[in-house]
Design a protein around this nucleic acid. Structure first.
Lengths: 243, 243
DNA sequence: GTTATAGTTTGGTCGTACCATTGAGGACGA
DNA sequence: TCGTCCTCAATGGTACGACCAAACTATAAC
């Protein structure tokens, strides 16, 4: 397994770039299908007629892009991977994180896409998925009623719920955005779970929303979503005043 | 310039990851502001007590993420950069390309945010901006009626128009998302301008949309937007059949 | 048949040396 | 004095060689 994909030696100066591009191109053209492994570093070294360090840097870059996965040991190596949506999300999250953005803008944006996602989810997700979503919300209720309502866990479940809902829209772009937002700005949502009142309201709202989704009631679901974001804005407002 | 930000030595095994994470954290926490440069590779080598190859791999990863920019020569080094939206755009493009996501998903997403942007723009933009938008659309009409309706220029004006409109929503997130989409996937839109029929219809549609926005007629503007995306889907469909 | 052990493959790290690029400061001439 | 050219130092880019650590394989021992 090393005859066909012969890489051409790279030029001087910025050889690392060249190597990375050649390998990436080979992957994207399907010359190395997902699951297969690239030649070993030492093998590539001879094919490219270049130092091993350069090869390693190129592989590191591809790994960062999510194109390959690297395993150690014999029969290890660089395996071509299906790019996950989370890779793209991370990239967007990094961008959003570095910008100082008004929380109100974010809320506005999230509400906008949340509404669309909800409509799509009601139309496209099957009953099983809707049930699972409802059950996830019920688990939150149970946790809230329990003896130790841990804020961290609740916030994490909130994130999961959002991403799960986005997946039900059957549109990867919405998944991309939603994951990025959850990665980059989940801290804003934490305030909802820090206060006992908002915590209770939010969880109850999630239960209501998922129920309406499961019942295929788009207008009621949207109404519930509106409540959610009214709560969030309210919470952010009171927090601002106290600080 | 080397006293405060002392990095801790990294553990064995996966030191590269550790180094990259430490530097990334330092950047995100603002310890090294944009424009400033990190210590030189050899300097970092001593601070981390680690081989230079590892440092280089970590820097390469950060460069891939768009967090730093590397310059050669004296006074060169790794400079902290503002992450650009094009990074996120590329990352998403890679995902969609490798997964062969249906272009219709992208259209669906764009239509969704386009509708929200339009409503916000009508509510928030002042008359001057609305006039400018209308005039930009009129320039397209003029160009189309002219002797040499260049496809490239038309497509570029289309992109500009979209971004201009997004700006009028007064919400930077919509603006960024729109830019990311335009950067990565304008190629889909090009097909609208390749065919004479669709070209004419699309330009006319832009004129109609901008007029309704200027006239503060949200429902009619939305209706016009709906037409736009119906056209786009139609165009993609016929293109698919012919190929 | 199962377990223990040695061996092989492969990624991960270290270190040194050298090349290429670039900017700065000094030397030289007009 | 000014400007041009040259040298030099700092820094990233490449190369090579060595060794370590992990993980799979095959063989030997029980």
């Amino acid at each position: 397994m090393s005859e066909k994909p012969i890489f051409s030696p790279a030029r001087m100066g910025r050889a690392g770039e060249d190597v990375a591009l050649q390998i990436e191109a080979a992957i994207l053209e399907g010359k190395i299908p997902p699951g297969e492994s690239l030649p070993s570093e030492r093998e590539l070294q001879t094919q490219f007629e270049i130092g091993r360090g350069v090869i390693r840097e190129a592989l590191r870059a591809l790994k960062e892009k999510g194109l390959i996965e690297i395993k150690k040991g014999a029969k290890g190596g660089a395996f071509v991977k299906q790019v996950e949506v989370s890779n793209a999300s991370e990239s967007l999250a990094l961008f959003l994180k570095q910008r100082q953005v008004d929380p109100a803008c974010l809320v506005e944006f999230r509400e906008s896409i949340d509404r669309t996602i909800t409509i799509l989810a009601i139309a496209r997700a099957d009953d099983i998925e809707k049930r699972q979503l409802e059950q996830a919300a019920e688990k939150m209720v149970a946790l809230l009623d329990g003896p130790d309502p841990d804020m961290e866990i609740l916030a994490e479940m909130d994130r999961e719920l959002n991403i799960q809902l986005a997946g039900m829209s059957k549109n990867p772009i919405f998944q991309w955005i939603m994951q990025a937002i959850q990665l980059g700005f989940s801290s804003h949502d934490d305030c909802l779970y820090a206060d006992p009142y908002f915590r209770r309201e939010t969880v109850a709202n999630w239960q209501e929303t998922t129920r309406q989704i499961a019942a295929n009631e788009p207008m009621r679901a949207l109404s519930s979503i509106g409540c959610h974001y009214a709560l969030l804005l309210d919470c952010l407002q009171t927090r601002k005043e106290t600080s």
